[in-house]
Amino acid sequence: MSRRAFLVALAVVLVVNAGALVSVARNRAGEPDATLVLEERELELQRGDGDNSGLLLRLRYQHASFDLDPRTSVPEDTLAPRFIDQAKLEALGFDCSVAAGNAEATAKYRAVLPRPAFIVMVLGGPEWERRVSAWQERRRRHTDDLVARGELKGDAETHARTEIAEAPRRLSRLMPVDAGRDAAALRAMYPDRSRSLILRGVVRLHLIDASARGGPSLHGDLDRVFPVVVNVPRALHAPLDALGPPPRPARGAGVTRDRSAAMLDHAPRYEVRVSAGRTFQPWVTEVRLLR
């Protein structure tokens, strides 16, 4: 029995790795599903410390509830649209049979399993520009209020205004706009393969109750998108190795980073060509420094 169990252990290693590599080959075979040129603002360098020599790029995208609680925030709080309404939730397979305003809704939706879905991410475009302008306007008003109340002044005010002015160059242009169970149907709706990227993700249902802003309603939140990070192969390390640490922001005392949008603290320093294959797993094909 020992011998057989030993062979089973070896077989597990070989079979599971073979399965993974076949999946990779399948993903990368033929024409990619999409090829996009992203910048540092969408793929932030996550350099390892002395104990990690790998180079990973963290995917950053505008998120409708980017670090905000979807039950207490409203769509206007964030740059990205809230695109998962009740109809979309139902299309994703969620059981929304109890109305949000119903007395049984809290019990019904308290422990709903999140569901996997294909997520469409669109890179920039007129809608993104419109939303960035609106976001800048809101931030300007907010900054003016703080200045008028004497809560923002000196370097901190300068930094806040610089950040707003430079937002179009620093904000991530990747914005999730749609979700579905059928990747082919989504691709048919978003045919531009150089601007729309389909990835796998997880959607979570939230009940926004009557006491909260926008309630009562059912709202889908993009819980996560896969992959969280993209590996940079050794052959493409050189441009990123040449980069120093990112410039440190000079925010001024007491001013924290705005959390309503995914934004870099500085101008993007590189761009990355990324392809996603038949099974929607992206890989890096080129890295170039921006002047």
Binding site: L21, V24, N27, V230, F280, Q281
Partner: peptide, 8 residues
Amino acid sequence: VGEIFALT
């Protein structure tokens, strides 16, 4: 391997 090839 999952991280290298961005496997779900």
